[in-house]
Amino acid sequence: MNIFRFVGDMSHLASFFLLLAKLIYTKSSTGVSLKTQALYLTVFVCRYLDLLVAFVSWYNELMKIFFIAASAYIVYVVATSTRNSNASDTYRVEFLVIPALVLACFVNETHWSKGGWSLNVMEILWAFSIYLEAVAVLPQLKMLHQLEDTTNITMHYMASLGIYRAFYLLNWVYRLYYEGYWHPIAVVAGIVQTLLYADFFILYYQSVLLRLPS
């Protein structure tokens, strides 16, 4: 565990608390894309199936369980929110899910000569979760561009997700250099994902930071 990975994880954790705070204290899910949240839940469930077969550390176990539970709760709250206007949550998610699944079937870390079929299916689902996470923010980004009244907390939520991605890139540079750790699937998808946030940070700068003191 290096400092970049830890800061990235804490920023990811903070993003959950920001979103939960928005949902609980404003009692409104306006501006929150149910599609993005459902994609994140899919990502965590597919990636953390290894909870059942591998133990890395208590830190990893608890974070994984929290990510699954929190995203499931967020999906539940947003889906059942009566005041949510989903009119602008119009992204066609099949254009994200299907290509991610097809790509995962062909580009993955399976070793069919070693482990059983279940471990290899987990490898395919792991790759799927990596590809899907890279693009899962797109429905939320589309909403932010369409809505004028996005609350600052939703923007801070997105910013903390972007910081999480940026620090994971630094973490991979560090781990490649000092540990020889190298997962090309995660790194390439991670770079794509971080680039998508560059678009968001321009919006963040224009709509939040430039507007702060009036």
Binding site: D50, V56, N60, W126
Partner: peptide, 10 residues
Amino acid sequence: DAFGDSKDEL
């Protein structure tokens, strides 16, 4: 490596 041995990130 079995799944999980080298996948220690979130």
